[in-house]
Simulated assay, not measured.
Amino acid sequence: MASWTLYQLVLAAVMLVTGSINTLSTKWADISTANGDPKYDEEYPDPRTFNHPFFQAVCMFIGESSCLLVFKLIILYKTCKRKPIDIGDQKFSPLVMLAPAMCDMCATSLMYMGLNLTFASTFQMLRGAVVIFTGLLSVAFLNRRLRVYQWWGIFLVFLGLIVVGLADVIAPPSDQQAQNITNIITGDLLIIMAQIITASQMVIEEKFLSKYNVQPLQAVGWEGIFGFTVLSILLVPFYFIQLKAIRVGVPDYRLEDAIDALFQLRNNSIILVATIGTILSIAFFNFAGISVTKEMSATTRMVLDSLRTVVIWAVSLLAGWEEFNPVQLLGFVILLLGTFVYNDVFFPPMYRKYVKGETPEERPLLSPESQEAVINYEDSGRSIKT
């Protein structure tokens, strides 16, 4: 830490703060109430909670899209200053980003649906499941060979996920939340399902995009544009799709009602501020995260991302959104330990001293370009733990 420059410290702080704001602002909007579309007033009395995960995903993609603008501004600045600049391979077709963007769209929508049903701290912890699915899919489709310590890391992450999930079931934080235990479990499962899609996105990018020298900010920006365009179009049919068998929280059982969301944004400044916070935090988080990887290391980025969970948990406790749960703390410690083991931090270097044939230089599961390009979510934002 002492060797870090002021610029590096600022980058680390921006990544930690904006990454935490992303999850917290989305949850803040979820639990806020406001009057919605007047046509629902008779059957659904106001005020109602802001339950619009697909609309929130569209807002997230707006933040990602801004990364492309930042990329262009950096090029303009360095050109004006006549500084050397690496713009990567500009001959690639942006359409190569379409498949990863669709994975991003599905995963983000599922995660926001899950976040609406469960706790912010649990949401952040369960996202660690991406380690498991990325490892398994890379073995199956990329012919990767995982080291022994990586399998141990996957096992520990899996164990941590079980403990975190059980914490919501066997020790619900409050009586009111205990009455909604079904929603909490559903939310947890949706978040884990989203990690499968996120892992698929990483594998797709590694298989098809690693051959292109695409700058990370540019890649994230194009993913944001495709995700925003497709999901915005889908909001129209979503308005007419009614899931009467499943109560999703939107009036008339609609899958999504963007018009109602806009009414609630207008009628409650807190929801508006939280939504703007989601958009801005996604943009700054992606920029800061990519810069941390470049200026320091991917390991530093992973550690900061783990600290983000601590910040989100602490703020949730102070805000009264949830109560302290020692079982959840145990699950988080196991998750953190598994993530560190899998990412070759602390324990594997000591382990290699006693294993013949191992060397300190281990090839990461994904290429550096893929690691940086699929960072987001987040949530997605997103974050890569490989």
Score class of each variant (00 low, 15 high):
residue 217 L to S: 04
residue 218 Q to R: 14
residue 218 Q to A: 07
residue 218 Q to L: 04
residue 218 Q to W: 00
residue 220 V to L: 13
residue 221 G to H: 02
residue 222 W to S: 05
residue 223 E to H: 06
residue 225 I to A: 05
residue 225 I to G: 06
residue 226 F to Y: 14
residue 227 G to M: 06
residue 230 V to E: 03
residue 232 S to T: 14
residue 232 S to V: 05
residue 232 S to Y: 05
residue 232 S to A: 15
residue 233 I to A: 15
residue 233 I to M: 14
residue 235 L to E: 13
residue 236 V to D: 02
residue 237 P to F: 03
residue 239 Y to R: 10
residue 242 Q to A: 11
residue 243 L to S: 13
residue 243 L to P: 01
residue 244 K to Q: 11
residue 245 A to N: 14
residue 246 I to C: 10
residue 247 R to F: 07
residue 248 V to F: 10
residue 250 V to D: 01
residue 252 D to T: 02
residue 254 R to E: 03
residue 256 E to K: 06
residue 256 E to D: 07
residue 257 D to A: 08
residue 258 A to T: 08
residue 261 A to C: 06
residue 263 F to E: 01
residue 264 Q to S: 04
residue 265 L to K: 04
residue 267 N to L: 10
residue 267 N to P: 05
residue 267 N to I: 03
residue 268 N to P: 02
residue 269 S to L: 10
residue 274 A to N: 01
residue 278 T to D: 02
residue 278 T to Q: 14
residue 279 I to N: 02
residue 280 L to D: 02
residue 283 A to Y: 01
residue 290 I to D: 07
residue 291 S to R: 13
residue 292 V to L: 04
residue 292 V to I: 10
residue 294 K to R: 13
residue 295 E to Y: 13
residue 296 M to T: 10
residue 296 M to D: 02
residue 296 M to K: 05
residue 298 A to G: 05
residue 299 T to P: 00
residue 299 T to M: 09
residue 300 T to S: 14
residue 301 R to A: 08
residue 302 M to C: 03
residue 302 M to I: 14
residue 303 V to F: 09
residue 306 S to K: 06
residue 307 L to E: 06
residue 307 L to C: 13
residue 307 L to N: 06
residue 309 T to Q: 14
residue 310 V to G: 01
residue 310 V to L: 14
residue 311 V to A: 11
residue 311 V to F: 12
residue 313 W to V: 00
residue 314 A to G: 04
residue 314 A to S: 14
residue 317 L to F: 12
residue 317 L to G: 08
residue 318 L to R: 14
residue 320 G to W: 08
residue 321 W to T: 05
residue 322 E to L: 07
residue 323 E to Y: 09
residue 323 E to C: 11
residue 323 E to N: 15
residue 324 F to L: 10
residue 326 P to C: 05
residue 326 P to T: 03
residue 327 V to K: 07
residue 327 V to L: 15
residue 328 Q to R: 15
residue 329 L to R: 04
residue 331 G to A: 12
residue 331 G to Q: 09
residue 332 F to W: 14
residue 334 I to C: 09
residue 337 L to H: 03
residue 339 T to E: 08
residue 339 T to P: 01
residue 341 V to C: 12
residue 342 Y to H: 11
residue 343 N to P: 01
residue 343 N to H: 05
residue 344 D to K: 12
residue 344 D to V: 00
residue 345 V to K: 09
residue 345 V to Y: 14
residue 346 F to P: 00
residue 348 P to N: 08
residue 349 P to E: 07
residue 349 P to M: 09
residue 350 M to W: 09
residue 352 R to M: 12
